[in-house]
Write a protein that binds this DNA or RNA. Structure first.
Length: 726
DNA sequence: AGCACGCCGACT
DNA sequence: GTCGGCGTGCTC
């Protein structure tokens, strides 16, 4: 008896496809993969339904080419989750499955875990045969592991063991077994750290919600020991054979975080981030699904990792913008995680020193429980924060004389200094002194940034690269001048001022080479006086113990930005940065150089702290009916031809207006930077106090939008709960 | 989105 | 005479 199998395929069509299978329905399960011919190509899809043969139009159906999985592949929970994501974000279901699966499995790799060789003691060595030193070491070690020890672990401890092992095999003393390859455990676990009362209380409260859905905001200033709270909470779950999913931001600096878990917990910990190879991702995913990974630490897409016995979800730095995907399926991992925790009926912890307004809003509505850590570990005090008027700073390449003096003071004490400039390159503007020509990007509405080290102009929006011109292309003048500051210029200025002090620049340009970042960190941690100049990437995730002065050079930009979220991010950045100064015994100092020291934002932040700023911003947003107040969706469109995007959105707007709905339609308007990477962009906003009404309106019209002629000429997408409104 | 089919311009 | 440009139409 054959059957019909309904398959979700990765294509932008908002539908699934029926195929004919020769196998009986019993041989199929929802969530299995199948290979089918689709149009003229071969695709792999996910089975979403199995149906009996119906009379109608069976002859139109193609046959399934291959059933890839013989046993269940995607657990029901993940099937439900991905289908919910597809409905909630109004994104084609096949593409949702695509984002949820590791590449190798998406492409049809069998779902078999990699194995590795384990060695076990087979019998006691014959007393007559002589055993070498290395061989004896192996035997001694294996004696402690009656269930065997992996060859990898033997190698880690004893070095090259290949020849000794084969000798032992010859004597029939040891035997090899193939077992599933687990992550290499830490050899020496660290002693459990002493927790303060706030930490203990937080852990207890979270554990009190074991086995039931409950959301916690764990707010703790930098250095207050959030990670210890995570680790000790995990310990409890791991001891109960329950798995923990830990989401982390997408910054390449996760090693320290992961190491602390590894060194503290006797558990199988897998990592899924961008530096993990495709085959290791697949292995981590399979280990998690099989319950052989106790803790899964990963970035955004790890939220879809299946677990056999999930107990807890943790989202570290929950305010981080990398949790929201900004193309394709525009999901927010925090949102998906919340949904997942709810349907699994397990607790979820959102951790941050500077929670997002969304999360604070929920705390205010008493939907999340608030946990707070206010004490810094080791009794370190928070640094003094002061504002510096930026007057005359342009004469010193963007550094005011008081900032330079402060740097000198800290350097003289053999301490380290950290300076933030949130712009890569040398200078953001190149201009002709004579005719006022400016170096602009030809594909974007943006200026080209001077990168002197590489003797090039870069567009930071589309990646266009040009040779740095020596003469003005308009009038031939040789007097080209650059304006503004970037990391390179600050680096150069400081090198000139402090001749004997190493100046390290840390940004995407200087850390691109493999290991260069790790090497820099190593150098920094040697503890000699040094000045570190860098972008935001320095603010996150890394502890530099000898830094006593943190300077913020171009803090003002955000205060004038048209993006209403800029002040929120600035308050978060300054607060995070403040935590970077003076850990341990050395007293810290933070200096913020600004053109507007009188600005109420600074006064509020310095006198009352992040929470107060966040509070104000939140009331402001509520008053102005901006997110997180109300429910928002935005249609985005882009086209190579000018005005095409906006025309398409005008038609979309027309369709939406046909319904008599409570949803407010705003726009369409061109994007703030209309042209980017050669495309003109526009957006159409929807807002409602009623989430259901918003989604209903989209569902009502999305098919007609797909059928619009213009929808083929312009790229369009829909963004639910947008985090960027421009 | 891919990919095929289809109908008009400059080239071995 | 052909190669190839991208318009439009379909994908169980």
């Amino acid at each position: 008896m054959s059957c019909i199998v309904e398959i979700a395929l990765s294509c932008p069509l908002r539908q699934t496809f029926d195929y004919l299978s020769d196998d009986p329905a019993e041989n199929w399960q929802i969530g299995m993969r199948a290979s089918v011919s689709f149009g003229s190509r071969q695709l792999i899809g996910i089975v979403v339904a199995i149906k009996p043969i119906a009379e109608k139009a069976v002859d139109k159906l193609k046959k399934i080419d291959q059933q890839i999985d013989k046993q269940s592949f995607l657990p029901n929970e993940i099937m439900q989750l991905v289908q919910w994501v597809s409905r909630y974000y109004h994104h084609p279901v096949g593409e949702c499955f695509q984002t949820a699966l590791p590449k190798r499995l998406r492409l049809g790799d069998p779902d078999e875990m990699q194995t590795e060789t384990y060695w076990i003691l087979h019998q006691q060595p014959d007393s007559t045969s002589k055993t070498g030193k290395k061989q004896q070491q192996i035997l001694d070690l294996l004696e402690d592991y009656p269930e065997g020890l992996s060859e990898k672990a033997l190698r880690v401890q004893l070095g090259n063991v290949k020849s000794s092992l084969s000798a032992l095999v010859q004597q029939n003393v040891v035997a090899a077994r193939q077992y599933v390859a687990l992550p290499v455990p830490c050899l020496e676990l660290q002693q459990q750290v002493l927790l303060n009362n706030q930490q203990k209380q937080s852990i207890e409260t979270i554990l009190g919600s074991k086995g039931q859905f409950s959301t916690f905001l764990l707010q703790g200033i930098t250095g207050s020991g959030k990670t210890e709270v995570y680790i000790e909470t995990c310990r409890e779950f791991v001891e109960n054979q329950q798995q923990v999913l830990v989401l982390i931001p997408e910054i390449g600096l996760t090693t320290q975080f992961v190491e602390r878990f590894r060194q503290s917990l006797n558990a199988s910990i897998v990592v899924i981030n961008s530096s993990v190879s495709d085959s290791d991702r697949k292995q981590a995913w399979l280990l998690a699904r099989a319950g052989k990974a106790d803790i899964i630490i990963g970035t955004r897409s790890a939220v879809f990792t299946p677990m056999i016995n999930p107990g807890l979800i943790i989202i570290d730095e929950e305010h981080d913008s990398s949790y929201k995907q900004q193309d394709g399926l525009r999901y927010h991992a925090r949102n998906v995680a919340l949904m997942r925790a709810k349907s699994l009926n397990i607790p979820i912890v959102l951790g941050s020193a500077t929670p997002s307004l969304e999360t604070l809003y929920q705390v205010k509505q008493q939907r999340y429980q608030f946990l707070e850590l206010t004490e810094r570990a080791g009794g370190a005090s928070l640094p003094k924060v002061a504002l510096l008027a930026a007057q005359n700073s342009s004469e010193n390449n963007g550094l005011s004389s008081s900032l330079i003096n402060a740097i000198e003071k800290h350097i003289k004490q053999n301490h380290q200094v950290l300076l933030f400039i949130n712009r890569r390159g040398f200078a953001p503007v190149l201009m002709c002194h004579q005719c006022h020509w400016q170096a602009n990007c030809r594909s974007c509405d943006a200026k080209m940034v001077v990168h002197q080290h590489q003797n090039r102009l870069f567009c930071h929006h589309c990646g266009l690269i040009q040779i740095l011109p020596k003469i003005c292309p308009e009038c031939g003048n040789t007097e080209l001048k650059s304006y503004g500051v970037g990391t390179e210029k600050i680096e150069q200025a400081l090198t000139a001022i402090f001749k004997d002090v190493p100046v390290l620049r840390i940004d995407r340009d200087s850390t691109q080479r493999v290991n260069s970042f790790a090497n820099m960190v190593k150098q920094i941690n040697q503890g000699q006086a040094a000045i570190l100049v860098g972008t935001q990437m320095l603010a996150k995730g890394h502890d530099f113990h000898d830094v006593t002065l943190v300077g913020v050079v171009d803090a003002d930009q955000a205060l004038f930005s048209a993006d209403f979220r800029a002040t929120e991010s600035l308050a978060q950045l300054i607060t995070q940065v403040t935590g970077r100064a003076g850990r341990g015994k050395k007293a810290g100092e933070v200096l913020i150089q600004t053109e507007q020291p009188e600005h109420p934002f600074w006064q509020n932040l310095l006198q009352h702290g992040y929470e107060s700023v966040a509070d104000n911003l939140l009331s402001e947003r509520i008053q102005m009916e901006l997110p997180p107040h109300g429910f928002w969706a935005v249609w985005r469109a882009e086209a190579k031809e000018k005005d095409l995007a906006i025309e398409l959105l005008q038609q979309v707007s027309g369709l939406l207006q046909q319904s008599n709905s409570s949803v407010l339609i705003l726009g369409p308007v061109p994007a703030l930077m209309e042209k980017r990477a050669g495309r003109y962009r526009a957006q159409l906003l929807m807002r409602s106090a009623d989430r259901g009404a918003l989604h209903q309106l989209i569902d009502q019209h999305i098919d007609s939008v797909t059928k619009l002629k213009l929808a083929r000429k312009a790229r369009w997408s829909i963004d639910i709960d947008p985090t960027e409104l421009i």
